[in-house]
């Protein structure tokens, strides 16, 4: 294969990574932006989404598309419920203290991970894609499903943006994010907002995971890479900035895809981490972040 088509293939792979990463990182960014909580368990909500997707799609017989669609709806809802419960049981009782909640979410990480190991097991299991159409390009064929993941992610990102900027719920979330105390003085029940945001953040990770399992299989340790990459994306893009998250996810996803294919995946990670270090040194608020108030 010549260089041009090779680069195209790498870019397509990178775009799929970007799409999934953008959704996952957006969840992390929302939770940090609104609640000021660094959710270390975010990757485990991702893993939980994938594992549940496997469980749901294998429980439903018939065409793989039926099982997949069921998983796409049910798995995120279940993960959202788990997150909602965890918020009520743990984070609220810590009064959302920034330091304590880091330790608490590390605890959640291990609890969820070990529960998955106990009940799901150590195997990596595939989920059948809902369709197996291949798009034939002049140089190679490419999975239609992978491109549909990119489209689905783009639609979800636009939807999230619309909710945040055009709806009453978005207004309430932004007010809580900007100034918790003043939001309360205007009748906004911030604890309920927090519970909702934590659940939505986890659901975004779960949706990303359901989209990716037909490509990469479900495994109980699969949450670690998305967590690391999400942090990288969120730091580069600027915490709490939707635009920054999307731009950084595309940047990291594409460079990961291209560098992995032409050099090595390790080099891709080295470069991404280096970029984070440079951003922290020269622009600590991130590319699109505003300085802390």
């Amino acid at each position: 294969m010549h260089f041009g088509p090779h680069l195209l293939l790498a870019a397509l792979e990178g775009l799929v990574t970007s799409a999934v990463l953008a959704l996952t990182a957006l969840g992390l960014s929302l939770v940090f932006g609104v609640m000021r909580i660094v959710n270390v368990a975010h990757g485990e909500f991702f893993m939980l989404g994938a594992v549940l997707a496997w469980a749901i799609s294998t429980a439903i017989s018939g065409h793989p598309a039926i099982g997949f669609v069921a998983a796409l709806v049910i798995a995120p809802l279940m993960v959202g419920l788990v997150a909602f419960f965890a918020e009520w049981l743990v984070l609220r009782r810590l009064n959302y203290n920034p330091e304590s909640t880091i330790v608490a979410t590390i605890g959640m990480l291990y609890i969820i991970q070990q529960l998955a190991l106990t009940f799901y097991g150590p195997e990596a299991r595939p989920v059948e894609p809902p369709f197996s159409y291949r798009i034939l390009l002049p140089w190679f064929g490419y999975s239609g499903y992978k491109l549909s993941v990119v489209a689905a992610s783009a639609i979800l990102l636009v939807l999230t943006w619309l909710v945040l900027t055009r709806t009453r719920i978005g207004l309430i979330m932004r007010a809580t994010q900007y100034d918790r105390e003043t939001a309360q003085a205007f009748g906004i029940p911030v604890e309920r907002v927090y519970a909702g945001v934590f659940a939505i953040g986890a659901m975004l990770a779960a949706i990303a995971a359901v989209l990716i399992v037909p490509i990469s299989q479900a495994h109980y340790l699969m949450g670690q890479d998305p967590l690391l990459l999400s942090f990288i994306v969120v730091i580069i893009g600027g915490l709490g900035s939707l635009r920054g998250t999307v731009v950084a996810a595309i940047l990291i996803g594409l460079s990961d895809g291209i560098i992995s294919m032409f050099f090595s995946p390790t080099l891709a990670k080295i470069i991404a981490t280096l970029v984070v270090a440079m951003v922290l040194v020269f622009r600590p608020q991130g590319l699109f972040g505003t300085t802390q108030r």
Partner: peptide, 25 residues
């Protein structure tokens, strides 16, 4: 309540700040 230092939602437009006031009651 009009807090000291105003404490507007400075990221938001004038209209959105007013909307938040209207939503309260």
């Amino acid at each position: 309540y009009v807090p000291q230092g105003r404490r507007l939602f400075a990221d938001m437009t004038v209209a959105e700040n007013i909307d938040i006031g209207l939503m309260t009651r």
